[in-house]
Design a protein around this nucleic acid. Structure first.
Length: 254
DNA sequence: AGGTAGGCAAGCAC
DNA sequence: GGTGCTTGCCTACC
């Protein structure tokens, strides 16, 4: 019940024209002239997926769950997902300890591990709500996954900085499925060669909005060339729970 | 005021 | 053994 007012606030996804990405070849998922492809209202002839393409970037976006089902899943996630606590909520980089500005946890098949900024995480065993989401992604995409990283952003202050996902433990060329629930948040891709003062090219960042119940498939070689981040959005007051399903190799290469 | 971008912090992997 | 890469915070600047 606490979520209903929050999730009803569809205004979170509405953007002013001036805020839109100016990238010419990029579709604008999760918005547009009232033609948002919600699963419960599939107009025939409307593309099932929205393809996002740029140099070295290949992603597909769609709404995976209708609002009622997404609301139900979010409620279950909020009740049942147990996030890491204590030492595992900190990262040690450049000699300093930082408290990560979000909550995080991993679930997956036993014996798999995932390394994030030098810390190796063991997954918690699968629970039904996560398997429900995982099975939906698999039935829709044909891809299987054995691991999920869950990030919870309590409001617009919580965020994650620019990064690429560690490729070493991923099955080569396997896609990452990013499923979002709760507040719609901006999601930004930046090409690796366009970062910093000594950038060798000026490819513009690509901004997407990841809506409640949506799926973003990040396909090879996106993760090779493009960093992604979830920047702070101070006006967002509601939580967002994001699940990135991955296919990890059974034996970690070190 | 919020969003963006750059500089900065030490240590490990190759 | 030098080089590249790392995440988040702070600051400056619109």
């Amino acid at each position: 019940a606490a979520h209903s007012s929050v999730l009803g606030a569809r205004g979170f996804c509405k953007r002013r024209r001036s805020e839109r990405s100016s990238h010419p070849s990029t579709p604008k998922p999760a918005r547009g002239s009232g033609k948002r492809p919600r699963p419960e209202e599939h107009p025939p002839g409307q593309p099932r997926w929205q393809e996002i393409r740029a140099e070295g970037l290949s992603c597909d976006y769609r709404l995976l769950f209708g609002k009622a089902e997404a609301d139900e899943i979010l409620q279950q996630l909020e009740e049942q997902v147990e996030y890491f606590e204590g030492e595992m909520t900190k990262v040690h980089v450049f000699g300093k300890w930082h408290h990560i500005p979000r909550k995080q946890v991993t679930y997956g098949d036993p014996d798999l591990t995932y390394t994030y900024s030098g810390v190796t995480f063991s997954p918690k065993p699968w629970i039904p709500v996560l398997n429900r989401i995982r099975e939906r992604v698999t039935s829709d995409t044909g891809h299987t996954f054995n691991f999920v990283v869950i990030n919870r952003y309590k409001d617009g202050e919580d965020h994650i900085g620019e990064h690429r996902d560690d490729e070493r433990e991923l099955v080569p060329r396997s896609p990452i499925a990013s499923v979002s629930f709760g507040a719609c948040r901006d999601f930004v891709f930046r090409h690796c060669a366009s970062r910093g003062k000594n950038a060798t090219c000026r490819i513009k960042p690509i901004k997407l909005q990841l809506a409640h119940g949506s799926l973003l498939m990040m396909k090879y070689p996106t993760n090779v060339y493009w960093y992604h981040s979830l920047p702070p959005r101070k006006r967002v007051l509601a939580p967002r729970v994001n699940l990135t399903f991955r296919k990890l190799m059974a034996i970690a290469k070190k």
